[in-house]
Simulated scan of single mutants.
Amino acid sequence: MRIVRPAVYILASGRNGTLYIGVTGDLAARVSIHQQDLADGFTKRYGVHILVHYEHFETMPDAIAREKQLKKFLRAAKLALIETNNPHRRVLTSDVQAWRS
Rank of each mutant, 00 (worst) to 15 (best):
Q35G: 11
R66Q: 14
V52A: 12
R89N: 06
T18N: 05
I64V: 13
M60R: 13
R2F: 05
Y46W: 05
V4Q: 15
T84N: 06
I3Q: 14
E55T: 15
A28P: 00
E67L: 07
Y20G: 05
A12T: 15
L92C: 05
A63C: 11
Y46P: 03
A29W: 00
L51S: 10
V96D: 07
Y20E: 01
K78W: 01
A39R: 14
K78S: 12
H34R: 12
K68I: 00
T43R: 07
L74I: 03
V91S: 03
G25M: 10
P87E: 03
Y46Q: 06
Q36S: 13
L81A: 10
A77C: 04
T84I: 06
F57M: 09
Q97D: 12
Q97H: 10
V23M: 08
F73D: 12
Q35R: 15
H56C: 03
V8S: 14
I82M: 02
S13W: 00
V96L: 05
V96C: 06
R75G: 02
T24A: 11
L51G: 11
D95R: 06
T24G: 11
A28Y: 00
R75T: 14
P6V: 02
R75N: 07
T84E: 09
A77L: 09
A76R: 11
T43F: 01
P6H: 10
N85V: 01
S101L: 06
A12V: 04
G22C: 09
L19T: 10
A98P: 00
E58K: 13
T18C: 02
